[in-house]
Design a protein around this nucleic acid. Structure first.
Lengths: 204, 204, 204, 204
DNA sequence: TATGAATGAGCATTCATTCAT
DNA sequence: AATGAATGAATGCTCATTCAT
C-alpha cells in the first residue's frame, strides 16, 4: 500500500506542476515562460520541477498527455452513435467545438504553436491524438458507407477534411475572427448541414 | 529619380534579407534561428539587418507581407468565376492546396506557429490575409446565393468553415499525416464533391 | 561492548561509502561525480552519506586517510634496511612505483589534482603522508651519512628530490607518456643506479 | 595593413583576457572561478570572452599555450651546451626551477591540477610541452653518451626521471613543504651533484 | 539510522541589439 | 550604408545539502 501512496503523491505533484505550467503557458506562451514562473505558480522550488520532468519540453508533453486523457474521457464516440448519422455528426461538432471553448482555448493555442515546430511533440501529438481519432472514425464511416448512409467517396480524405475543418475553425477563432467568436454556437448546425447535404442549391 | 533608385536598392536589400530569413526560418524554425544565421545566409553583417528591419519579429512581418503579396498576385479570384460554381470551388481548392505545396510548406509551418503566439503578427496576419479573403469571398457567395446557386445558409460561417478546412488539412499534413501526403492531389476533387453535395447518400 | 559493535558498523558503512566514492571518483573525476553517483554505487540513499561524511570534500579526506593507512601498512621501512644501501634504495623505488600501479593510478590522479587545489586536503596530505615520510627517511639518511655510506650532501633536499622524482614519474605516466608505460618495471633498476652512482661516465 | 591591425587587436584582446584569467585562476582555482570573475578582472563583458574563446576550458588551453611559448622563448637549450656536462645540468635545473618561481607558481598549481584531470588539456600539455622537451633532450643525451660523457644507461628513462624530479619538487613545494621553500635556491647545486655523481660515498 | 523529496543558489553560455568606426 | 565587436540581460538546468518522515 505504501507504494501506492508514493505513487499517488508523485501523480499529485506532477499534476500540481502541470496545472501551474498550463496556466502560465496559456498566459505567456511557451518560450516566454521560465521554469521559475512555473515553480512560483506551483509554489515550489525550481529544482523540484526537474524531479518530475526531464526538461521544459517534457512539461508540454505532459500537458499534451493530459489533454489527450481528458479527451479520451469525454470522447465517448459510442454515445454519438445512438442516433442517426445527422445527430452523430452534429454531436461530434458540438463536442469538438465546445470541449476547448471553456478555458482550453488559450493553452490549445500554445500547444498547436509548439507542436507545429517541435518534432518530438509533433510525433506524440500525432500518434496519441490525431491518429487514434482517425482510426476510430474510419470504423464508423466504413460501416455507414456499407449501409449506404454515406456516399462511398474517399472516406479517409473526407474524415481528414472534416476534422481539419474543426481544427482550422479553432485556429481562425484564435486568430481573432470576431464573426466566429460571435456565432460559435451556431457552428454545429451549420457545419452539419453543410457536411450532410452540401452547399449547392437543389433548385437553382 | 535618384530617390527611386535609392528606394529600389532598399527594396532589393530587404528582399535579399527576407529571402535569407525565409530560407533559414524554414530550415531551423523561428526561435532557433539567430540573426547571425540570417546575416551569414544573406552574406551581410549582423548589424546591416537592423538597418532594414527593426527586430527579429519584423522579419516575420516582412515574410508575412511577401506571402500575402504573392498570394494577391496569384489569387485572381476573377479567373475562378469564369466557370460555374463547381469549377470555381475546385479551382479554389486546387489553388489553395497546391500554392503552398512547392516549397512554402515549411515556412508556412513556422509562420503559423509564430502567428498563433505573437499578437502583433496575428493581427497583421488576420488584417492583411484572412480578413480580405473573407471579405472578397463574401461578395461572391452573396451573389450566388441571390442567384440560388448556393443555399442561403449562414454564408459567413460556411466560408470560414471551408477556408478553415484548407488550413486544417495543411496543418494535418504538417503534423506528418501520411495519408494526406500520399493523396494530396486528390483533395480538390474530394473536397469539391463534399462541399457541393454533402456526404449523405441520396438513396440510402 | 555494544558500542564496539556500533563502531564497527560505522566503520563498515564508512568503508562501503569510501569504496564507492573511490571507484566513481577514479572513473569520472572529483567534480563530475555527484553525491548521487556515489550513493547509487554504494546502494544507499544520498542522505545517508551525510550521516558519515560532512560533505563531498570529506570523502576525499577519507580516501586520503585510507591511502595513507594502506601505505603505512605496506610501508615497512624496516624491512628495507635489512640489506645494504643499494638494495634499500631499489626496494624503495620498487615499492613506491608499483604500489600505485595496480588500480590506484586513476584515483591517485584525482587525489593529486584535488590536493593541489584544496588547502584543507593539501594540509592533510602533507601532514599525514609527505611529512612523516620525510621525517622517517631523514633518520635513515642521517645514520648512513654518519656511517659514510652516503655522501654528506644536503640530505633533506636530496630526500625531497628522490621522492619528488617518484611523484614526478607517476605524473608523467598519468600524462600519457608511453615510454614510461612500456618500461615502468625497469625504473627501479635505472633509478637506483642513477641515484647511487650518478650519470657521469667514470672514464670519459 | 588593415588586416594586420585587426589581427593585432584580436591578439591584444586575447592576451587581455588570458591575463585576467591567469590572475583569477591563480587566486581562486579553475572551478571556483566564474566567467564573470574573469570578465570583471579584464574590465569587459561576459559575452566578449566568448568572442575569443569557445568556453572556459579553452581559456586554460590558452594559458597553457602561453606558458609554452614563454617557455620556448627562454628555453634556449643551445645556450646550456656551451659549457660542459656539469654546467649544462646545473643550468637546466636553475632554469627549470626558477622560471616558475616568480609568479607562475600559483597558476602552475592550477594548470597541473586541471591537466591531470582533463583529457583535452592533458593531451595538449603532453604534445606541446612534455614531448618536445623529451625529444630535444634525447638528442643531447645521445650525443653525450656517444662521447662517453654520460653513462649509456637507459637514457629515455633517465631523462624522464630527471624532468620528473623537477616536476615533483615543484609539486612538493606547492604542497607547502617549508624545507623546499627555504632552500629552493640551493637545489640546482644539490641536484647537479646528485645527478652527476650519485649519492654513494666513494670512500665508505 | 535511513530515506529521498525538496531546496535554491549558482553558472556557463547564448544572442538580440547597439554603436563607434 | 555597412560592419562586426561589444554588450549584458536572461535562463535552463545541476547538484550539494537539508530535514521531515
Amino acid at each position: 500500500m505504501k507504494e501506492s501512496i508514493q505513487e499517488q503523491l508523485i501523480v499529485a505533484r506532477r499534476n500540481q506542476i502541470l496545472d501551474a505550467a498550463t496556466k502560465v503557458f496559456a498566459q505567456k506562451g511557451f518560450h516566454p515562460t521560465t521554469i521559475r514562473d512555473i515553480a512560483r505558480e506551483a509554489g515550489i522550488a525550481d529544482g523540484t520541477i526537474y524531479n518530475y520532468f526531464e526538461n521544459k519540453t517534457a512539461l508540454m508533453l505532459g500537458i499534451l498527455d493530459r489533454l489527450n486523457e481528458s479527451d479520451q474521457r469525454h470522447e465517448d464516440f459510442a454515445k454519438f452513435t445512438e442516433g442517426d448519422f445527422r445527430s452523430f455528426t452534429k454531436a461530434y461538432f458540438r463536442h469538438r467545438l465546445t470541449a476547448l471553448k471553456a478555458d482550453n482555448f488559450e493553452i490549445f493555442r500554445i500547444v498547436i504553436s509548439e507542436v507545429l515546430v517541435n518534432r518530438e511533440l509533433r510525433e506524440l501529438y500525432y500518434r496519441k491524438i490525431i491518429e487514434p481519432t482517425f482510426t476510430m472514425a474510419e470504423t464508423y464511416f466504413q460501416q455507414w458507407a456499407e449501409q449506404h448512409i454515406v456516399k462511398s467517396t474517399n472516406m479517409r480524405l473526407a474524415m481528414r477534411a472534416i476534422s481539419g475543418m474543426v481544427l482550422g475553425l479553432i485556429i481562425e477563432y484564435l486568430m481573432g475572427d470576431t464573426t466566429l467568436e460571435t456565432a460559435w454556437d451556431e457552428l454545429p448546425d451549420v457545419l452539419t448541414d453543410m457536411i450532410m447535404d452540401g452547399l449547392r442549391s437543389e433548385k437553382p
